[in-house]
């Protein structure tokens, strides 16, 4: 049962990694933008939640209803005022601007909140567990995290394939010029996509902050976990991304069980192995 527990924990953490990945994958799918500041935005959301919680004594899990709209709004304007100016045939501008943004956010947080690590306390739910079988129990919080990831991915999937907004986003992604011929306003749609991405980032940031300590410098590794989940799962497939997150989480859990120093390394090695032997990912999108 010891190994069963390890793997189960890994699976549940994988839900969090899938949340890191979803926003990244979404904006790449819609506008081919890789946002290097993605991880730092997750950490920023955690600090916004920290402010909310200390100002209002709200439970951090409920702070999501304040943080998500705020981040979404910020995302819309970030896209309209900054990233839309960088989109074009040249890859360099969006990449370097988002890299600059990453450094700005990281050091901005460092300046305001110092390098001390923080944590959000969600109360009794943090220690609550559900007994599955004898000797195997699941924490309620990790379970909630995983269920949220599944719910968010399911909702995005529904939005993409069943709602007019999703149709618009896919059309714009396929051919931005023809999308304009249909009367779509691409700049607005890109803004909406970034808003959705940062709303998911807000959820990820809060779970990150409730689950463990955080400080201004941990953004880049969250970006990397999210990125690895996307590549392991296969580009353009949100359920694949969930699977990628789970595989990464399990690999890290097994690595950590063997030797604490191997936790992160094991995750990276699985990623590199996928890149070496199945570069299209484990569950690539089948193109019509």
């Amino acid at each position: 049962m010891e190994w069963g527990n390890v793997i189960l924990q890994g699976v549940l953490v994988g839900g969090l990694y899938a949340l890191f990945a979803t926003g990244l994958s979404l904006i790449f799918g819609v506008m081919r933008l890789v946002n290097i500041a993605h991880g730092d935005l997750i950490v920023l959301a955690a600090y916004v939640a920290l402010i909310c919680v200390t100002q209002t004594t709200l439970n951090p899990l409920l702070a999501i209803f304040i943080v998500a709209p705020l981040m979404a709004l910020a995302g819309y304007f970030l896209q309209r005022l900054v990233f839309n100016r960088t989109l074009g045939p040249d890859l360099l501008p969006p990449l370097l601007v988002s890299f600059g943004l990453s450094v700005i956010i990281q050091n901005g947080l460092l300046q305001v909140f110092s390098a001390d690590s923080r944590k959000l306390s969600a109360g009794a739910i943090e220690t609550a567990t559900v007994q599955v079988v004898d000797g195997l129990s699941i924490g309620v919080l990790p379970l909630l995290m995983f269920a949220t990831a599944v719910a968010i991915i399911g909702a995005l999937q529904f939005m993409f394939y069943s709602l007019p907004l999703g149709r618009a986003l896919r059309a714009t992604s396929d051919d931005p010029e023809v999308a304009r011929l249909m009367g779509y306003d691409n700049k607005h749609l890109f803004g909406v996509a970034m808003a959705i991405s940062l709303a998911v980032v807000a959820v990820a940031g809060i779970f990150l902050a409730v689950r463990a300590n955080f400080d201004p410098a941990i953004g880049p590794s969250r970006l990397i976990y999210g990125f690895e989940a996307v590549i392991i799962g296969g580009l353009g497939n949100l359920w694949g991304t969930l699977a990628g997150g789970v595989i990464l989480g399990v690999a890290q859990a097994i690595g950590a069980k063997i030797d604490p120093g191997w936790q992160l390394l094991a995750g990276h090695l699985v990623f590199l192995a996928v890149l070496a032997f199945r570069p299209e990912g484990l569950f690539p999108k089948v193109d019509g």
Partner: peptide, 20 residues
């Protein structure tokens, strides 16, 4: 390995290598 990643994903791939 990293040349299998295109464009911007190449950037993050190189970062993973540095982390390793």
């Amino acid at each position: 390995l990293v040349f299998r990643l295109k464009g911007a994903y190449f950037a993050i791939g190189t970062w993973v290598v540095a982390e390793v």
